[in-house]
């Protein structure tokens, strides 16, 4: 069995207002191993993105435990989380979330800059990542000049370049046509198999199931093994 890199155990996320109480995630437990691709599926509002935010150390759970690289990070101080995200987690977003004022190459470099990678290594890693996703001819292009599929590839290259062992993707194919979406799915699956990355994908895309190792279903904040 491969090493577990990321896990949640009995996690809840409750949003409590003055008159309302919304349970976004309820008693969720899951583990994500090295070299695996896991899809989290479920209807809108089922808590998928909230769970992904907890896995990405962006959101703190109301209770339960989160383990990253074998270390319990649940109660870590907020100030220490950015370092963990930089070192261990790469994100891929549904809306790509590229920096509009930066070229494709610079968008990737920013992630390396945050990790304080020196210039020669950063440039080599960024170029290599962009080449890996087939954008070697588009490095100088700005997001406005790239297609949706190309933007998502830049987003993937950004996650790749930092060598983050864990990649969390939120609806990576939602804004893409079916052909481009399939290519992105293949790419993410390859990353897991060839490079041993742990890939967790929140998706509505049922085609994803053919390419993943595990599928978790979510409904009303609860997680079910498929």
């Amino acid at each position: 069995m491969n090493t577990i890199r990321l896990a949640v155990d009995g996690v809840n996320k409750i949003y409590a207002g003055q008159a309302t109480r919304v349970v976004a995630v309820e008693d969720a437990s899951a583990a994500f191993a090295e070299g695996s691709v896991t899809a989290i599926m479920g209807p809108s509002g089922s808590g998928k993105t909230t769970l992904l935010s907890i896995l990405g150390l962006i959101l703190k759970p109301s209770n339960g435990r989160v383990t990253l690289m074998g270390r319990d990070v649940t109660d870590l101080d907020e100030a220490r989380l950015p370092e963990l995200r930089r070192q261990h987690i790469g994100f891929i977003f549904q809306s790509f979330n590229l920096f509009s004022a930066l070229s494709a190459l610079e968008n990737v470099l920013v992630a390396l800059q945050l990790k304080k990678v020196a210039r020669p290594e950063a440039e080599a890693a960024a170029r290599s990542a962009l080449s890996r996703v087939g954008l070697e001819q588009r490095m100088r292009f700005y997001p406005r000049d790239l297609s949706g599929g190309e933007k998502q590839r830049v987003s993937i290259a950004r996650a790749l370049a930092t060598n983050a062992p864990i990649i969390l993707a939120d609806e990576p194919t939602a804004n893409l046509d079916s052909h481009t979406g399939l290519a992105i799915i293949d790419l993410l699956a390859e990353l897991a198999r060839e490079q041993g990355r742990t890939v967790v994908v929140v998706t509505h895309d049922t085609r994803m199931q053919e390419h993943v190792d595990h599928t978790l279903r979510m409904e009303d904040g609860r997680v079910y093994e498929n």
């Binding site: 990405g56 100030a79 995200r85 070192q87 987690i89 920096f99 509009s100 992630a111 945050l114 990790k115």
Partner: peptide
Amino acid sequence: LREFGTLKALGAENRT
């Protein structure tokens, strides 16, 4: 704002 949020998600500290 979204870009600043993305920076934070990528591991940028608030001071960045």
